[in-house]
Amino acid sequence: MADSVVFGPGFWGPIIATASMLLIAGAGYLLILASRRISPRRPTSEKLTTYACGEDVSPSQTRPDAEFFFSPIRRVFRPFYRYIGAKHTGELSLYVWWVLIGALVLVVLTAHGLGVL
């Protein structure tokens, strides 16, 4: 069993890894700049507005909606939100009650850990 992790030896040490990440990011940025330089720019007023399927989209709708974006995750964990997330009601006596329940559970777990149960 390793006594301690050693970062650094070998080719993929943290410094080389960081340097190559920065290098690649830089190269990517250069590519973007180059493509902007090379490509023809013919902006029309129509192109500068936001549109979807030929219809204009108002600016307020273009804001990324984080709630909506993450709804798949929420759907996957729905039981969690229904049974545990819903318990976060902000009620003080509930907090205290959970402390007591936690204490009871901890007694069992500690006893198990110490080899008593």
Partner: peptide, 12 residues
């Protein structure tokens, strides 16, 4: 239920 929990902790 809450009363029961408190009593359980107390008894323990």
């Amino acid at each position: 239920l809450r009363l029961l929990t408190a009593v359980a902790v107390g008894l323990l």
